[in-house]
Structures are given as structure tokens and as C-alpha cells.
Amino acid sequence: MKVLIRGAGVAGLTLAHALARRGLQVEVAETRADLAGGASWMAGGMLAPWCECESADEAVLALGRDAAAWWERALPGHVVRRGTLVVAPPRDRAELHRFAARTSGHQPLDGTAIAALEPDLAGRFREGLFFPGEAHLDPRRALRALHERLAAAGVRFHFGGEPALPVTADWQADCMGMAAGEPGLRGVRGEMLILRASDVTLSRPVRLIHPRFPVYVVPRADHHFMVGATMIESDAQGPMTARSAVELLNAAYALHPAFAEAEIVETGVGVRPAFADNLPRVRRQGRRLTVNGLYRHGFLLAPAMAERAASLIAAGDGSEEGELAHAAHG
């Protein structure tokens, strides 16, 4: 059985992996010239289902708690399991307590404990939270590595092609995010920065609580840091605004003043595909399937969605028309 996947973002590649593992023949068509540029490329790569439940539905925890293990199996060595650190300046302590009340799986930290986890933050914060079960990865390295492995395993890739690539397949799976134009899908614009700060060392994602602008800093190789991300109800793809840049930089500076000397390596804009409840869906109509609405949880929820979609394809005969699998609630 052959499956054509449209879209080589995190949804498409995780589905390709899940299908290939089940022994199915897979082709992936991507309209972009390569892996770069889509929403997945701009992702933070945090596998942080407990933190996300501060504002997300409980389903995000249920679907995302095994994500780190999935990525570890798929890409050994890519997942960093060092948890998430959440800190707040003294004046935003109330917000930190609110964050703690809305989430689970954390331990309270005092200044000494924060310094023990991240020595560079010593003396800067008196109160924080530690989420030991969380993990992170570098999304770009992960996408590239997954692509290489899939290609080596016989998955055929067609980059820079038309979406209506004439490939005969038994099943088609649309994993195109905003480009899918699904009914009910909206765009949530996110802006991010990549900084290089040679004076700062962090070993895990750090979230800075701020009443107006929560922000996270994710360490990447060679003193690079991803700082993100804005959440704007818009599907505009245009360049980052000055206001967003100021907010992100301010937050990074509040976390550590040495970020003032950082090089701005990249500013990025991505549009996250989301449904009204901000939860993802796998939908099936005959032998055509869509995976969409991963919102700000691409790397966190794509594995669960991919496994569900792959099981549907491997098991189903596709004869029932219009069947919907709301995987998020399934």
C-alpha cells in the first residue's frame, strides 16, 4: 500500500515515519524547495506538556506526555531531558503562583535551587518552578535528521513541486498546515528571534513569567538561543514588527543582562495552524486524511497525531465517507 503525504513539516515527517515503520510505502510532496521556512522550522522545540497546560486544554498533556519518548526512539540523541525552568521577577510573583496553580508536575524552587540548575541565573531570581519531566530538541536538526533517515529507509521526497503532484497512491494525507485551507482553520502568527550570546550558558528551556508577555528562551548548540514567541491572531506572513522584537529582546534581557550583547542571528515569522479549540485533529474522508491544527504544539503533539493517523491508514479500508476522527478527544 502506498501513501502520499503532502507537506514536509513536522506533521508530514512524523506521519511518514509512523507509516514507514508499519512497512507502508510512502512518498512526501512539499511545495517548498526544502525543509526550511514553514511553521515547524520556526518552532521552539519544547516538549513541555505540563507547562503548556497553564493555558491549554488537558488533552495537550494526555497527547503530549509521551512525545519525548517518541522522538528519542525516532531520533536517538536528539532529545535533551533536562526539564523546564520557570522563573519570575519579584514583582510578578503572583503570576508565578498562578502558573503553579494551573499546572502540575512541578517542584517549587528558591534562589539557591535555581542557581544549582542554571548557574548563570544565580542571584537573579528568588522563586521559580521546575518541571523535571519535560524535554526539548532542536527542531531544525530534528527535521533534517528525520528527513535523512526517511530518505535512507526508502521514502521518496518531491521538493518544490505542485501540491497536485501526479502520484498514484492508495491513500493521501494532507499535512500542509495553513496551506491546506481546511474549514475552521485559522492562523496564529508567531515571531521569534535566534540570538547568539557567548556569555550565556543555559542547559534547558527557561520560561520567564511576565503579566503581559510570557516568553521562553531555548538553548541550542554553540551558545545560540531561540527566543519566542508572540501569539497574534493573524495569518500575515510579513516581517517581524519592531514592537515584537522589543518585547522579545526585553524579556531576554530581563532573564540575563548578557543578552544585551547577543548577536541577533535571525528573526523569524511563522503562522501556526489552529482550530477554534486550539487542539489538533486527524480527519478522514474515504482514503483521504488530514492532520492539522497543531497550533503551538507541533513537535509536542505531532507524534501522537501521526500514530493515530498511521493506525487509521494501516487498519481502515477507507470505505466510510466523511468520518471524522477528532483525535484530540479520542
Binding site: 492562523g187 502568527r189 497574534i232 491572531e233 493573524s234 495569518d235 500575515a236 510579513g238 514588527t241
Partner: peptide
């Protein structure tokens, strides 16, 4: 950003 046209 979200005011004009199709955006938002």
C-alpha cells in the same frame, strides 16, 4: 497587522 485585508 490583522486589520487589513485577509490577514486575521
Amino acid at each position: 497587522e490583522s486589520a487589513g485585508g485577509k490577514a486575521g
